[in-house]
Amino acid sequence: MIAFVREIVRVINVPCRSHSVMMSASLDGRLARATRVGLSIHTVLCVPCRRLFAQFTLLHDAAKKLSREAQDRILRNEAMPVEVRDRLRATLRGR
């Protein structure tokens, strides 16, 4: 319990540069509970870090959404373009 609280206090007080790395780790789902709690408290207290975390989270959510649309796009463009195929065929024929 003491170690848990100590970790929370440590995380609240480390320089903001480290919080940026922690936020990324948090979104990757690999932050220990005490570190997560400390980070949450810090983002409540620190406005720029809160904004940074909000933007990271927005990117995280946006990327998930890109998934479906990007896959749709890839499926639509999956065929080798006809002109590329023709050029390749011509090159290979000359060999």
Binding site: S40, F53, Q55
Partner: peptide
């Protein structure tokens, strides 16, 4: 001002982190 979209995400992340601020 921190815009609403970011504020929403900030709210979500606090919710996802459980023990964050109640504000």
């Amino acid at each position: 001002m921190v815009h609403q979209a970011e504020a929403d995400h900030a709210g979500n992340l606090r919710a996802s982190h459980g023990k964050g601020s109640k504000s």
